[in-house]
Design a binder for these strands. Structure first.
Lengths: 258, 258
DNA sequence: CGGTATCTTGACTGTTGTCAAGCCCCGTGG
DNA sequence: CCACGGGGCTTGACAACAGTCAAGATACCG
C-alpha cells in the first residue's frame, strides 16, 4: 500500500559509471546484461534501439512496494532488473494466494492482457528495480518488428508452460516434491543468471512458499527439516545450500538435467 | 494411437446445406457460428477472409484420436469446432496428468509456442472436429493484420489467466471446492455457447477429472455423492443437473456472476 | 535494545489416499 | 435378443500425510 517510488533516491546512490544492469537503474536495453534473458532476445541492435524508445527504465522499489494492484487497469508489463517479486491474488474473504515468483530478466503482468485488468497484485520481496513497458506501445512496435512479435508470442508461451508446470506440480500431492521442485526452479534460474545454483537465499517467507505450493507454512518448515536431516540441503533460515543435487532432483521427480 | 482421420466419412454424413459450424466440417471462419468465441473476434469481414486462407478446416476425429503428441514438433494451433478434448502430460514413469479440458470455440496447442514442441498431448474425448492453424502462417498474418495480433495476444493472455485460476483452485485444498469449480466452469462455458448451464454431460471420466483436479477418482465420486445428497446437483453417471446454483457457487467460493 | 514477524516443534485431528470388493452401464458377439 | 466382458463407477475400511492449534525460539527492524 505504499505508492511512493524511491527511484530518485536510489538513482543518486548508484554511480552512473557502473554499467551493470541490476545496479544501475538508468541503463538501456542494449547495455543491460540481462538482455539475453529478457525481452530483447532475437532482436538485432537497431531493433533494440527502437525497443529502448518505449521502455521506461530504471525505476526502483523497496520491499513491500507494489508494482501493480489486482483489478487495476492494465497498462504495462514489467521486466525485472534486480531483486525479486511475488504475485498474489486476494479473494473476497481476504485470503492471499501467491501465484508467482519473479526474478531478474523475467516479465510480469501478462495476466492483465486478456481482460485489461491485472489478475493479481505484484509486490517487491526486497529492494529491486524494473523496467516498465507500456503494452499498447509494445503492440504497435510488434506489428512493425516481426521478430519482436515473435519474441513476445514465445514469452507468453513460456508463461503458459510455466503455469502448467506449477499446476502439475501442485496436483501431484507430495509436499516434499513441491518444495524440492521450487528449490530446483530457483537454482536453475540462478544458474541462468550466472549465480550459484547451489547456494542462494530464499526470497519468500515460509508462509509465501506454502501459499505458492499449496501447503501450510508448518509443512514447508517440516519439509526443510527433513531435507536437512537427509543431508540433501543445508537450511539456515532463508539461506539454502544444496548438498546433494541428484537426490533433490530425485525427490522432485526431475530426471533430466534441470 | 489412431492416426486415421475420419474427415472424409464424416463429411459425407453431414449435408453441406447445414450451415452450422459444429456439424459441417468444411465451413469457413466467416460462416462459423463459433466465430464470436474463437479466433476471429475483433476482425472485420475482409480480415476474416484472409484468416480463412491459412486455416485448414473441417477435419474430424473420433474418441481417442490424438490431435498432437507431447514433445512432437509444434506446427499449429487448433481451434475446437465440435466435441471435447483433453490435454495431458505423460511423465517418465508413465503417469498421466490431465492439464486441460477444451470445448468448442477454444484454442489448443499454445503450450508449444515457446519451445517449438508441444508440452502435452491432446486427445478427443468423443467424436469431434477442429480447425488447424499453422502457427508460422498465423505469425506472418499477424504482422500484417494488427487486430489479429492483438486478438492472439489476448487469447494467450486468457490461457495464462485460466491456468493461474486452475493453480489457485488446486492449491486451495478442499476437494469439494475443486469439483464444484469444475462444474461451474463447464456450466459457464456451455452458457457462452447457448447451451444449458444447468444440464450437461461430463466429457471426462472420474479418473480424468481427478487427475485434472489433483484428487483421486474415488474422492471425485464421493464428492458427487455428497453434492447429490445435499440436493445441489443431480448426478446420473456422466449426466449432471445443477439444482442449486447459488449453493454450488458458495462451495466453489465463487461469489460473483458466472 | 525491545518488539514484532518469522520460524520451529509438538500433539492431535481430519480429510484424503490406498486397497479392495462389488455393481452398473454399454458395447460386442453369439 | 440376450449373454458376456470390461471399463467405469461406487462404497467401505483403514492408514497416513498434512492441517490445525498452540507454545516457544529465533531473527530482523527500527
Amino acid at each position: 500500500m505504499k505508492p511512493t517510488s524511491k527511484a530518485a533516491i536510489f538513482a543518486k546512490e548508484i554511480p552512473y559509471a557502473v554499467r551493470s544492469c541490476h545496479t544501475n537503474p538508468s541503463i538501456s536495453c542494449g547495455e543491460c546484461r540481462l538482455g539475453e534473458l529478457c525481452l530483447p532476445i532475437a532482436l538485432d541492435a537497431k531493433e533494440i534501439l527502437r525497443l529502448d524508445e518505449i521502455v521506461k527504465q530504471g525505476r526502483a522499489l523497496s520491499k513491500g512496494d507494489y508494482l501493480y494492484h489486482q483489478d487495476e487497469e492494465f497498462k504495462a508489463i514489467y521486466a525485472i532488473r534486480a531483486g525479486s517479486f511475488k504475485t498474489f491474488k486476494t479473494s473476497r474473504d481476504g485470503t492471499e494466494q501467491v501465484t508467482g515468483l519473479y526474478l531478474p530478466g523475467e516479465i510480469m503482468g501478462m495476466d492483465g492482457i486478456s481482460s485489461n485488468r491485472y489478475g493479481s497484485s505484484a509486490i517487491a520481496l526486497e529492494t529491486g528495480s524494473f523496467c516498465e513497458i507500456p503494452f499498447h506501445l509494445l503492440e504497435d512496435l510488434s506489428t512493425k518488428i516481426p521478430s519482436l512479435q515473435g519474441r513476445f508470442f514465445r514469452l507468453m508461451g513460456q508463461e503458459i508452460v510455466k503455469d502448467q508446470q506449477m499446476l502439475t506440480l501442485v496436483s501431484s500431492n507430495a509436499a516434499d516434491e513441491r518444495v524440492a521442485a521450487l528449490l530446483l526452479s530457483i537454482s536453475s534460474r540462478n544458474h541462468r543468471r550466472k549465480l550459484s545454483p547451489t547456494h542462494f537465499r530464499l526470497p519468500m517467507t515460509r508462509a509465501d512458499i506454502g501459499s505458492y505450493l499449496g501447503v501450510t507454512l508448518e509443512t514447508v518448515s517440516r519439509v526443510f527439516g527433513r531435507l536437512q536431516k537427509l543431508a540433501i540441503v543445508k537450511v539456515d533460515n532463508r539461506e539454502i545450500e544444496v548438498i546433494d543435487m541428484p537426490a533433490l532432483k530425485k525427490i522432485a521427480k526431475v530426471h533430466d538435467g534441470d
